[in-house]
Structure formats: structure tokens, C-alpha cells
């Protein structure tokens, strides 16, 4: 079983937002994340960036009537 590097893991984490990973990819990803705090931070940051774009758009809006 090839455990992905940080570089590969960051690509898989990014693609998680765009497609369904294969079982093989998901297993490799989880194995890496268990031992790598940096990639766990990246995972959280990806979720944050996605929500930030949405919040940016909604920012000054008047509540809908």
C-alpha cells in the first residue's frame, strides 16, 4: 500500500471537493492524515476557504424580504 506524500495528499484533499475519491485513494488519504498534522490543517483550511467564498458573497446583504 502506497501511503501518499504531503504533496499527493494535498491534491487528494483538494479533489475531495470536486469528485468522489476511489476507496483506494480514501484509505491512503486517511492513513496519511493520521500521522500528518500539516495535512490535517490543510483539510480544515480547504473547508474554511470554501465557506469563506460563500460568506464573502453574502456579506453586506439586506435580509430577504
Amino acid at each position: 500500500m502506497h501511503i501518499p506524500t504531503c504533496r499527493e495528499t494535498s491534491a487528494l484533499l483538494s479533489q475531495t471537493q470536486d469528485r468522489k475519491l476511489t476507496l483506494f485513494e480514501r484509505v491512503g488519504l486517511r492513513l496519511h492524515l493520521v500521522v500528518c498534522n500539516g495535512c490535517r490543517q490543510f483539510e480544515r483550511q480547504l473547508a474554511f476557504m470554501r465557506s469563506a467564498v460563500k460568506r464573502y458573497l453574502e456579506r453586506d446583504d439586506h435580509p430577504p424580504r
Binding site: 506524500t5 504531503c6 504533496r7 499527493e8 494535498s10 498534522n37 500539516g38 495535512c39 490543517q41 490543510f42 480544515r44 483550511q45 474554511f48 469563506a52 460568506r55
Partner: peptide
Amino acid sequence: VVDALFRADGHWQNFPADWGDPGNAL
């Protein structure tokens, strides 16, 4: 772009930092 962020062995050049509770920034 990607090369600059990773070492040759595939590790982060600088590991992503803990952003704490980034929701506060919003």
C-alpha cells in the same frame, strides 16, 4: 507554483499552520 510549496521528497516546504478558529476572521 506547486514545486515551490513542496520539497523534493513530497513534504510541505512549510507545513500549514494552525489557523485556530478561522471563523472569527469572517
